[in-house]
């Protein structure tokens, strides 16, 4: 089985991605050694990763189920703004002590509940009404961000109490709080996906909903839960986002939706559903973050990051296809597997 091209057959492209990440890391360490390999750079990267990271996890969950969540940023903004308004009303800037901590706790709860509610709506539109996920979440994207605009009348909210700002800027044992939150989410969702019966069922529903129904799985319940999970993750991204910038705005982070899809796809999540791993996602986000930081140091403009991200997505996807083709050719020559009677397996993809 050991052939020089074995890595090409690796199913989710995880090794390939690891290689890409390592190459990017090595190249940048070589090009700008003093600054790339500095504590300061790693600190700043660890503040940038969590927001897009949380949104990407949310996107990946929806994509594994065979759908997509275009409303991710809408949910983040709407739930964050609901929480901010509560916060500003009961504990404006400068408030401290237990009271402020209590209000912050409640507002976090409000935000997560709102996220879950938004996710519930998405899930119901997809399962009960039967709108394709891409359209349902396109509609709710407009709806959620629209409601966020209505709530703020298009203005920005700012002046949060310090207890809230910790979420975006604080340190826990000298580790940035947002990074801790992201790590917790990676761990929890990773376990949920790979080591629970819910996650197990989710992958099956995403692979073949018909077979899942015939196997007795409750597709609708699984999808609704997935969109709710996605909603909660988006809400937490919203909290980190607003706490870090100390302001809440309805149209914050519009480009994050596409970036989240990009990260998920780069991490090996299949758009058609059924495949996607937390390890791939983390690698994808690391490689993209290394690139952006490196570019900033090389004095490329901030926008070149957008260019490279897009180009990288295309390159990796094309590489995956080429790899699969090569692998299949090799496998065909080795005729290791027995096909269906009549040899119709190829057409059933």
């Amino acid at each position: 089985m050991k052939t020089p091209l074995r890595f090409l057959r690796d199913e989710n492209g995880l090794w390939r991605l690891l290689l890409v990440t390592a190459v990017i890391f090595a190249t940048l360490s070589f090009l700008v050694p003093g600054r790339f390999l500095s504590v300061r750079n790693f600190a700043s990267m660890s503040f940038q990763i969590p927001e897009i990271g949380l949104l990407s996890i949310a996107m990946m969950a929806a994509m594994i189920s065979g759908g997509i969540d275009l409303s991710a940023v809408g949910i983040a903004n709407l739930s964050g703004i609901l929480a901010s308004q509560f916060l500003l009303h009961y504990a404006p800037e400068g408030a401290g002590g237990t009271w402020a901590a209590l209000v912050v706790a409640v507002s976090v709860g409000i935000s997560l509940a709102a996220g879950a509610g938004c996710g519930l709506l998405n899930g119901l539109l997809v399962t009960r009404v039967g709108i394709p996920p891409i359209l349902a979440t396109l509609g709710t994207m407009q709806l959620f961000s629209g409601l966020a605009i209505v709530l703020t009348r298009g203005t920005a909210l700012y002046g949060f109490p310090d207890a809230f700002l910790i979420l975006g800027n604080g340190y826990l044992f000298s580790v940035p709080v947002p990074l801790v939150l992201f790590a917790v989410a990676v761990l929890l969702v990773g376990v949920l996906l790979r080591r629970t019966s819910f996650g197990f069922s989710l992958y099956l529903v995403g692979t073949n909903p018909t077979a899942a129904r015939f196997a007795g799985l409750d597709n609708a319940a699984i999808l609704v839960k997935t969109y709710m999970l996605s909603g909660v993750l988006c809400a937490s991204a919203g909290l980190v986002m607003f706490a870090r910038t100390n302001s809440a705005k309805a149209d914050y982070g519009v480009s994050y939706t596409l970036q989240a899809i990009l990260v998920a796809v780069l991490g090996g999540t299949n758009v058609a559903g059924g495949f996607g791993s937390m390890a791939g996602l983390v690698l994808a986000i690391l490689s993209l973050q290394f690139l952006s930081s490196g570019f900033a140091m090389l004095r490329f403009s901030n926008f070149s990051k957008e260019f490279v991200w897009g180009a990288l997505l295309l390159a990796v996807m094309a590489l995956n296809v080429l790899g699969d083709r090569a692998a299949r050719k090799m496998q065909g020559r080795k005729n290791g597997t027995a096909p269906q009677a009549g040899g119709e397996t190829e057409e059933l993809r």
């Binding site: 926008f303 260019f307 991200w309 897009g310 296809v321």
Partner: peptide
């Protein structure tokens, strides 16, 4: 080219090119 030669999903390809085109414009 990407859609036809690599048979990639259209949504993903155009998301990628969208990001690349816009980034190219603003950066270069």
């Amino acid at each position: 080219l990407f859609i036809s030669a690599f048979r990639l999903p259209t949504l993903i390809v155009t998301l990628g090119t969208m990001s690349a085109f816009r980034g190219f414009l603003l950066a270069f």
